[in-house]
């Protein structure tokens, strides 16, 4: 019974995704067209990349609220550089440097100064937002068309953002599943104390998780620049919530130690995007969007809590007779 419930919960994102697609497809004809679905995947790629990075931080039972602000800060710097005459590759390189650097700051605040992740990254959120506003002087910056070309260019017929997103998800998945680093990250998320006792360098590991998250934030910033071609004060606003919700919807636990980059992050991000697109398709009142988005976040967290409680109940054993039986059976084997 509990096992079935757990399996259902573990695949909840697929069920929800299917439910959302069918509902909006029924309400708004055309929502389920191939073009619309492909568009949905491309649109959700920045959030998927953010969620992939967020997965690493959530894995060690941390959280990074600053990803949206890091996107904005990096984009503002890149925009300023482009308008100042630097080449696009240089601007992109600067963004990809700033992301991990911000992540390093977060990581050091958490591991060296022992500031709670929630507060430390809330602080860097305001720092990043403030920095971005200062650099842009609160005005929207229209960037050269080269960024938009970047966003709409195709490689082998596949849009570049999709390729970048796929590469990030693949690399993140390999890093988490097939390297000692990933396995130790998982162990640390279960219990940092036990991990330290086992001889794992917990501080370095946790810092690395924030650096990865920062790098993904910068990449997501590039993807959004490719979609918008402009940096406004609202660039990346509230993206941290979408990223956390996507990762958690995709099965990564806020309690640490459980989850995966793929397919969870992608499905979670696509689900959130599908809700947004669906609301547009049925001409819903725009003031309703935040209400619906927050409902999605609540559902994500509720699912996670249910999973956690069920798992604790399912694995708790107090010497049942079956245990002795199973034991002698296995001893005989």
């Amino acid at each position: 019974m509990k096992r079935t419930a757990l399996i259902l919960l573990d695949h909840a994102v697929i069920l929800l995704f299917a439910g959302v697609l069918l509902t909006f497809g029924f309400l708004a004809p055309g929502f389920l067209s191939w073009a619309s679905l492909g568009n949905l995947l491309i649109q959700s790629s920045p959030t998927a990349v953010l969620a992939a990075g967020m997965t690493f931080v959530l894995m060690v039972a941390g959280v990074d609220l600053s990803v949206g602000a890091v996107m904005a800060l990096a984009a503002a710097v890149a925009g300023k550089m482009m308008l100042g005459g630097f080449s696009m590759p240089l601007a992109l390189a600067a963004m990809l440097f700033m992301g991990p650097a911000c992540g390093l700051v977060n990581g050091l605040l958490v591991t060296r100064l022992h500031i709670a992740a929630f507060i430390a990254t809330l602080g860097t959120l305001w720092l990043g937002r403030g920095g971005a506003l200062w650099i842009t002087e609160t005005r929207a910056m229209n960037l050269p068309d080269s960024f938009l070309h970047l966003g709409s260019s195709r490689l082998l017929g596949i849009p570049l953002p999709g390729i970048i997103c796929a590469a990030v998800l693949a690399a993140g998945n390999v890093l988490l599943e097939q390297t000692p680093f990933g396995r130790q990250l998982r162990a640390t998320g279960h219990s940092a104390v036990a991990a330290a006792k086992a001889g794992i360098n917990v501080r370095r590991l946790v810092t690395a998780a924030y650096v990865i998250c920062g790098f993904c934030a910068a990449l997501a910033g590039i993807l959004v620049l490719g979609q918008l071609g402009a940096v406004s004060p609202k660039f990346g606003l509230n993206k941290e919530f979408a990223a956390i919700a996507a990762a958690v919807l995709g099965g990564t636990s806020l309690f640490g130690g459980r989850g995966a980059v793929f397919p969870g992050s992608l499905l979670g991000a696509a689900l959130i995007q599908a809700v947004e697109n669906g609301l547009v398709a049925i001409n819903a009142n725009p003031y309703l969007y935040p209400v619906v988005t927050s409902a999605v976040i609540f559902v994500a967290v509720l699912l996670d809590t249910l999973r956690q409680r069920l798992r604790a109940a399912a694995t708790r054993r107090i010497f049942p007779e079956t245990e002795a039986k199973a034991f002698s059976a296995s001893a005989a084997a």
Partner: peptide, 14 residues
């Protein structure tokens, strides 16, 4: 030990 890891991962974690 770490219940969220496999036996092999628990044995060779470090």
């Amino acid at each position: 030990l770490f219940p969220n890891l496999t036996l092999a991962e628990n044995l060779f974690l470090t």
